[in-house]
Design a protein around this nucleic acid. Structure first.
Lengths: 127, 127
DNA sequence: CTAGAAGTTAGACGGATGTCAATATAGAGA
DNA sequence: TCTCTATATTGACATCCGTCTAACTTCTAG
C-alpha cells in the first residue's frame, strides 16, 4: 500500500487514470508490480493473446470453448490450460451452460494494463 | 503482413488507433500476435516491469544503469539480463556515454500495447 | 600502460512453462 | 441407467527462464 493503493479496482475507474497512474508518472511499487506482471505474463504467449483477442472481439460478448479449439494447432487440453491461466490472471470470466463453457473478457482488467502503459506525451487523454 | 501491417510503427501513430486496432475490434492474426506477445512477455516479470517503470518515470527521460541496480535485490548481471530482454522486445533503447550506460523508454512501443488493450466501451477515445 | 570501475557475457543449475496422451468430470439424451 | 459429447485435470517430458559466480570488455584516471 502506497500512493495509489487499491490493487483490486473493482468497478468503475476514472477514464483518465485507471486504477493507477501510468508507468511514466510514478515508479511502480514492488507489490503492485507483481500483480500487474502476472497479467502481462498471461498475455506473453501467442496462443493466450489470440484467445483473449478472440474472446474480446466476439460480437456476442462471449465465446464457446468449442468455437476456439478449432482455430489453434494445439490439442484441446492445451487450450484449456491457457484459458485457465487467463482466468487466474483475472482477464477472463467463464460460465458453464449445459455441455458448453463460455468465456467472457474482463474489460476492467484489460483497461488496467492499458492505462498503465499509456504515456501522457502520446496524445492520449490521460492527465 | 496482413490488414494492419507495419509492425515497426516508427513515429507518430494515430491517437485513436495506434499501430493496430484494439483487441476487441478484430481478432489478432497469429503473426501479429507473436510480435505483441513478445512485448507482453517482456513485461511479465516483476523486475522487468519495475525497470521499465523506473526508466519511463524518470524526469531526465533516461536512467543510468548504475542508478537502477541498487534498487533491486538481484545481482548486477541479472539486471543486465532483464534490460537485454526489454531491449530485444523493443521497449527500451540504450546508449553508452563514457563508463556509464543510459536506458530510455521507447514510448511508441509501449503505446502499441496500450492501444491493443484499450476497449472502446470504457471511456477511451478509441473508435 | 597499468589499475580500477561499470556493464555485459558465459556457463551452470534449479524451477517454471507449454505440450501431449490418458483419464476424469459434467451434462444431455436415449 | 448407459452412452456420448464437451471440458478439465493429471502426469510425464522437453524446453525455457531467472538467478548466480566468474570472466570479459570498455572506458577513465593516473
Amino acid at each position: 500500500m502506497s500512493k495509489v493503493g487499491a490493487t483490486s479496482g473493482s468497478t468503475a475507474v476514472s477514464p483518465s487514470q485507471g486504477c493507477c497512474a501510468p508507468l511514466e508518472a510514478v515508479p511502480l511499487d514492488p507489490a503492485h508490480a507483481a500483480d500487474m506482471a502476472k497479467m502481462f505474463k498471461a498475455l506473453g504467449d501467442p496462443v493466450r493473446l489470440r484467445l483473449l483477442s478472440l474472446i474480446s472481439a466476439h460480437p456476442d460478448g462471449e465465446v464457446c470453448v468449442c468455437d476456439l479449439t478449432d482455430l489453434f494447432d494445439v490439442a484441446a487440453p492445451t487450450i484449456s490450460y491457457h484459458l485457465k491461466l487467463l482466468r487466474e490472471a483475472g482477464l477472463v470470466d467463464h460460465e458453464r451452460r449445459g455441455t458448453w463453457v463460455y468465456y467472457r473478457p474482463v474489460r476492467e482488467r484489460m483497461y488496467q494494463l492499458s492505462a498503465l502503459l499509456a504515456a501522457s506525451d502520446m496524445a492520449l487523454p490521460a492527465r
